[in-house]
Nucleic acid binder design. Structure first.
Length: 580
RNA sequence: GCGCCCGUAGCUCAGUUGGAUAGAGCAGCGGAUUUCUAAUCCGCAGGCCGCAGGUUCGAGUCCUGCCGGGCGUGCCA
């Protein structure tokens, strides 16, 4: 690695000052300003005080003393208050560029995680209605994180937790049943806090008019293994309604669950999300994992009984207060189920787990971490990422969203109107924990002005250029040092300087859990390519060597853009419709 | 009240973990096309980085206190 070479060279010089490897962390970064060279260190600024020297003088001495092979580091300069700037020799930049191009090169070298198994759980929306736009942000982040983790060598596993047990699901069944009976003209008391969304009315109408056909259709969506447990209840709706209330509601609930999970899964598919596991809460109950988790906590002396309920001593783990695991009436809380779920996740052999949660769950983190600690799971095993709230604006006004009241923008509508690619890209240009205003009108009406198109266009443009070359009989060779040595223009070298950062960008985005670095970088690459393309126009009319070098540079650029768009999960088009 | 997140251009947001003259897109203004798609490029304008202190060679970034916005603070999920 280039950085290692620089560090080693600098350390050799620093020994004369009595500074050794363990004394100092040498930072190297790419300066914002191109005129400041390719890499820069603030070493002299950091050491100035410790050595009682003026930073600028110290930098001058170090710069004069340090030595590198000329074909790697072309120049060493001091600037500003005491920065030492390095300029990478063009020969070496070409080597780095080829390292990015070579499939066995840099993109293999960054796969350092050793196939460790890592679980990424995201969306995990309640199965009580269609996915809404909030899940779109989680989907974009979760899926890209999975791919990023794979890119750095993890064996990453995408998981969706389905809360198909508990009160919400019961309420769902009762709500559907009430809608159904209402359609029959019966007097019904709609459950308090029930679900009033229009989708339940439609679902009820389907049951009324198609009944068994509707049930068969919904069941057919679940013929694969992971959804085996989502099965249609016996009989038809007309039978269900005559059963005793509880049992009747359970039948309607099962049907609704089946139907809604079908929607959710289809929405995810449309959005390009692939889950390795859909984990059902009901399985936890059936396999007695709640009892087992509770038993384990008991053995650790982490629970006690009071007022008829079973409490977890989360206050000993920095939580504000203790939390109930089993209610006085004997029903377990969601918290206990969640503990059992994560305990099982741990037992399934994942070395690390990342959960994407909404901002309304942040108060939940402490008790969850407390439970993990009480179960002797190493600290840091569970990593919770909070995705901040998204404000959707329509006509300049925020849209209030309430699932129970049934008013929200569905993820499907977003995909229909804005498109999956644009939506993902927009979400991934923002940091996970920043609040975000998403103007639907703007996204819908002005999609051609969205930055994602600039990146797609750059890719299409390169394809188009290469096609044109082929049709003129120009053969584009594999990128090679001999040809790339003919790069001349400043814009070409600026592009090279950016392209060779790809491995570092991927690594930093993966480790910092900040996929938005990918979109920012993709935008930079596209801008630099377009700049090069405009300033060095009519590439194919250039002399053969110049032409070859530029075409080869284009090839590498196309691959870099493709790698980025694949990570983000959006299409890299070979051509785009000409606008007007 | 307490806890968490956020305050950066008119708008939406970046800012390489403390670096050099704070950036991009959109909106505004002015230029560039006999093309290999102008869905592009070039230029101009736009800023007390919420406010006030502190830490140090150096702060949009770190610490404290305010101000403003969002969320949480259930034997709900």
């Amino acid at each position: 690695m280039l950085e290692d070479l620089l560090r080693k060279g600098l350390l050799t010089v620093l020994e004369k000052y009595g500074v050794f490897e363990e004394d100092v962390q040498i930072e190297l970064e790419k300066p914002r300003d191109r005129s400041h060279g390719d890499l820069s260190t603030n070493l002299a600024l950091m050491l100035g005080k410790r050595l009682g020297r003026k930073p600028r003088e110290l930098a001058g001495e170090i710069a004069a003393d340090v030595s590198f092979p000329r074909d790697v580091i072309e120049s060493v300069e001091i600037a500003g208050p005491g920065f030492i700037n390095f300029r990478i020799a063009r020969q070496h930049q070409i080597d780095l560029l080829l390292d990015v191009w070579n499939p066995e090169g840099a993109l293999q070298d960054i796969r350092t995680a050793g196939h460790k198994r890592i679980n990424v759980e995201f969306i995990s929306a309640n199965p009580t209605g269609p996915l809404n736009v909030v899940s779109a942000r989680a989907g974009a982040f979760g899926m890209t994180m999975v791919r990023l983790l794979e890119a750095v060598g993890y064996d990453a596993h995408a998981e969706y937790y389905v809360n198909d047990a508990g009160r919400q699901v019961t309420l769902l069944g009762q709500s559907l049943r009430a809608h159904y009976l209402q359609l029959l003209g019966e007097e019904v008391v709609f459950p308090e806090e029930g679900y009033k969304g229009q989708y339940l009315e439609i679902m009820a109408a389907e049951l009324l008019h198609q009944d068994e056909a509707a049930i068969r259709a919904a069941s057919a969506a679940f013929n694969d293994e992971s959804f085996q447990r989502v099965a249609a209840p016996p009989g038809c709706a007309n039978d269900w309604r005559r059963l005793p209330d509880d049992e009747s509601a359970r039948c309607f609930s099962k049907y609704a669950l089946m139907k809604i999970l079908g929607w959710q899964r289809e929405t995810c598919r449309r959005f390009g999300l692939r889950f390795d596991t859909w984990y059902f809460e009901s399985e936890l109950h059936e396999t007695k994992r709640l009892d087992r988790a509770l038993e384990r906590l008991r053995k650790q002396d982490a629970v006690y009984e009071e007022d008829g309920a079973v409490w977890f001593k989360s206050s000993t783990h920095d939580d504000e207060k203790d939390r109930v695991l089993v209610r006085a009436d004997g029903r377990p809380t969601y918290f206990l189920a969640d503990i059992a779920y994560h305990y099982h996740k741990f037992q399934r052999g994942f070395e690390h787990a990342i959960d994407y949660w909404g901002p309304d769950h942040h108060g939940y983190i402490q008790r969850m971490q407390g439970a993990m600690a009480a179960l002797d799971i190493e600290p840091g095993w569970l990593e919770v990422q909070i995705l901040q709230h998204v404000n959707f604006l329509e006509g300049g006004q925020p849209i209030k969203m309430s699932k129970r009241a049934g008013s929200f923008v569905t993820m499907d509508a977003l995909i229909d109107e804005v498109g999956a690619d644009v939506t993902k890209y927009i979400f991934l240009t923002r940091k996970p924990n920043s609040h975000l205003d998403f103007d639907l009108d703007l996204a819908k009406d002005q999609t051609e002005k969205n930055p994602v198109l600039k990146v797609k266009y750059a890719h299409a443009r390169i394809c188009s250029l290469l096609n044109e070359a082929a049709s003129r009989g120009v053969i584009v060779g594999e990128p090679s040092p001999a040809m790339l040595a003919h790069l001349e223009h400043e814009a070409e070298w600026a592009l090279v300087g950016e392209l060779i950062r790809l491995p570092r960008i991927i690594v930093s985005a993966a480790w910092a859990r900040e996929p938005h670095r990918l979109t920012g970088y993709a935008d930079d690459i596209a801008a630099l390519y377009n700049e090069f393309y405009t300033k060095c126009r009519r590439i194919l009319d250039q002399p053969e060597e110049r032409r070859q070098s530029q075409l080869q540079l284009s090839l590498v650029t196309r691959r870099v853009i493709k790698v980025l768009l694949d990570l983000i999960g959006i299409d890299a088009p070979e051509k785009m419709e000409k606008r007007d």
